[in-house]
Write a protein that binds this DNA or RNA. Sequence first.
DNA 1: ATGAAAGCGCTAACAC
DNA 2: GTGTTAGCGCTTTCAT
Lengths: 340, 340
Amino acid sequence: MEKKVALKDVAQHIGVSTALVSYVLNGKEKEARVGADMVKKIRKAAADLHYQPNLIAKSLKMGRTKTIGLIVADISNPFFSTIARIIEDEAKKHGYVVIFGSSDENAEKQLNLIDVFTTRLVDAFIITPAASTEAQIESIINRGIPVVLMDRFFPGLKADCVHINNFTAAGKAIKQLIKNNRRKIGMVAYDTKQSHMQDRKQGYKAVLKDNNIRFKKEWLIEASYKNIEKDVASKLKALLKPLQVDALFFATNSLAVAGLKEINRLGIKVPDDLAIISFDESDAFDFFYSPVTYVSQSLTDIGIETVKLVLNKLQNKTKKITDVIVEAKLMVRESCGSKS
Amino acid sequence: MEKKVALKDVAQHIGVSTALVSYVLNGKEKEARVGADMVKKIRKAAADLHYQPNLIAKSLKMGRTKTIGLIVADISNPFFSTIARIIEDEAKKHGYVVIFGSSDENAEKQLNLIDVFTTRLVDAFIITPAASTEAQIESIINRGIPVVLMDRFFPGLKADCVHINNFTAAGKAIKQLIKNNRRKIGMVAYDTKQSHMQDRKQGYKAVLKDNNIRFKKEWLIEASYKNIEKDVASKLKALLKPLQVDALFFATNSLAVAGLKEINRLGIKVPDDLAIISFDESDAFDFFYSPVTYVSQSLTDIGIETVKLVLNKLQNKTKKITDVIVEAKLMVRESCGSKS
DNA sequence: ATGAAAGCGCTAACAC
DNA sequence: GTGTTAGCGCTTTCAT
């Protein structure tokens, strides 16, 4: 268990000042006009002694940690873990490391994570904010810490964000169902005020209206984020037994997975009795007997754009608030009743 | 954008020394015999000024960061992200934060992550090591940094680890298939030297032998981690067209997902033509027309036990190497050909 | 072209 | 009980 070797040690090793070593090891030999032979000597000494810089000390001195704090609803959800992976890769390219936390869509947990991460001086935040947490986001901004919202945002809050147009995307799904001659179209959503969910609901209702379909409030099922399985199952059963709709639009893949299980249990035939479209992908969709049609948002794009935005802020390239809209497309497969 | 308030600011605010403030804010007022009224005054001042400690400074001083470095093969894989979530929660309970990185089962990437994390002075590592990286793990140990291996380990390397008994678990699966009158049993695995994979293969072969079934090397398909889909599809096709086995054991859920897609493409009927068992869960398994039997390892237990081990090391409760074996059980469903 | 030294914010040993 | 201060490892200004 060898003792850690510090910058001072390599300086002493060759009898020079720490300043020189610092310059060289940070590639600033030009600015500091360090002699060419000196540079070599220092490089060699550092290698010989297996010098590894102490980034904590550097962070303290520099006032930045090269760390991004990522707060998602739940890292174990493939939607978020897939994005996390993209973010990790993009961040790494620029020397950043990611610390993560899961809020469970809970404002209190989210606040706690923000505090913990702030305390550790993350340079920036990437957050999929829980409902009604604009004040938290605002406070981050006020402290001068860059923050980018992902997937959701707060109307009226001046914050950078990247997301799809959920209103339009949901609309595409509903249009497809109508095209396939479905008119009694139900929707399964979360009971949250979050923008992405509201927009999806509005998109759904708007397209119904455009097609002179009178929305019935029983058609809209709103499940609680905690206890998805149970909630979806029971409420869906009420809507499907007896069958009061001929199509169902799921606002997320988790809702769809829970819903499809109940649909199987009830023995309802997709798409003949009930057409199905979901938001987002899932391995499960490929294996459902009637491959599930879904709204595909490119998680890669979301991740890449998010990090790009963060880095722009970090490098002070821009002060202005940016709202990046990523494309979403409908992947039409059997479950929506299209003859393929 | 208010300026950060430091401990010194709090001290000055009420005209006391930083030492006092430090003691009180760290709950050491007893040891330091700080006056009761003083304690209150300091607490109030800290609150009034919205003091938030700078953990980077604290880390530098203390030589520990309260950070755990988590290195998995791929955080976007539900297997790892589920464990990550457990680790996050357990770590948080003890004031630890997790930084993560994905190695893609690649030794070089893993080494890079270890270096980056070391440089940031993580207090401990949790790693699902890539193949042939025992030297890397050893070097962590030699530097005196606690490390716990998850899911895999290195025979002969003295390192803490938590995992299931892969030999036995795989055996259970094969026994079940044999019980269901299958004797031409194939296996789809990764072509890696990693212990978990080797043990699963050995378990498979051992049970065949116990049952006087002569193992044929065409039965064992070994796919590359990169390009799973293609590799599994093509090699599986060779084995299944014409059908040379009556059962198939997949060594991981990713392999199974890829494999089942090919099985569907080939129009092979599960379980009648081909019985199936996989390792680990997947949403997809519930929706395959013949619900997939799988070996279930409790990711919760793995996560909890791992963090427990890490904390033990961190608190120096023990010096000795511990090998935690977590239970695995076979979830029997239709795909393995059992009449249910 | 190189060195000395201040100081980032905090803890804790020591002095009073 | 409370204050003073060294020092964690690093960067960078300012001398020389």
